[in-house]
Amino acid sequence: MDFRHAAPDAFKAMRDLEAGVRRSALEHSLLELVKVRVSQINGCGYCLDMHIKEARAAGETEQRLYLLSAWREAPFYSPRERAALSWAEAVTQVSTNDLPDELYAEVREHFDEKATVELTLAIIAINGWNRLVKACRTEVGSYMPATVA
């Protein structure tokens, strides 16, 4: 299905949310790590392809991308990134897990109120994209980052 043309107003709303995430003060590298991790959890091949390519084009290392699914064991992520990844996993899996106060406190150690909301909206957005492209059977593998295309 071509969701862009089938429901242009709804697609515009998704694009507007994504544009707001991109305008946030959050680091591009952090956002790409979160998008990749959430897409791993959701098994979204299209979004994994897109955001791994975007991260690499922006200078992210292969080692950090390869080990992202095991980030807790790998020493390559900053405390801020670890807090964001923990929050991303918890928000993504909120239907089966709680958002514990300890995790919220950890996130707030690294992100002020505005950044916490922006991070949460980024997580909400990528979860929405994952579900949309999976449900519409979007073809995997053709995405080219703007810096390459």
Rank of each mutant, 00 (worst) to 15 (best):
G45V: 06
I126F: 00
E139D: 10
G20M: 01
I123A: 01
V38K: 00
A13H: 11
C136K: 14
D98G: 09
A70Q: 11
W71F: 10
L121Q: 09
S86W: 09
C136A: 14
A125P: 02
Y104S: 07
A74L: 09
L68K: 08
K53H: 12
L31Q: 09
V21F: 02
I52E: 15
A57E: 07
R137S: 12
L99C: 10
A115T: 06
V94A: 06
F111L: 09
Y104C: 05
Y104F: 11
V140I: 02
V133T: 12
E18V: 04
L121N: 10
N42T: 06
D101P: 01
R82Q: 13
R64W: 00
A25G: 14
A74I: 08
D98V: 13
I52N: 03
A135W: 03
L68Y: 11
R15V: 14
S86F: 05
S24V: 11
E73H: 02
T92I: 07
T96C: 10
C47D: 02
E27M: 15
V36T: 07
K114I: 14
L132C: 03
V140G: 06
A25Y: 04
N130P: 05
A84R: 01
E27P: 14
L17Q: 11
E62Y: 13
T96V: 13
M14H: 10
T116Y: 05
V38P: 00
K114R: 15
S78F: 06
I41P: 08
H28G: 14
S39G: 12
A55E: 09
L103N: 04
V21Y: 03
R131G: 09
E62A: 15
L99A: 11
K35A: 04
A55W: 03
H28P: 14
I124W: 11
A55H: 06
V133K: 15
G59A: 06
A55V: 04
E102Y: 11
V36N: 02
E54K: 10
A13E: 05
M144I: 10
R15D: 12
Q93R: 12
K35N: 08
L103G: 01
G20A: 06
E54W: 10
N97C: 15
Q93E: 10
M50H: 08
F111W: 03
L31A: 08
I52D: 03
Y104L: 14
K114S: 13
L85V: 02
A83Q: 00
G59N: 06
R15I: 12
V117D: 05
A13K: 05
E118P: 00
S69A: 15
T92M: 09
R137G: 11
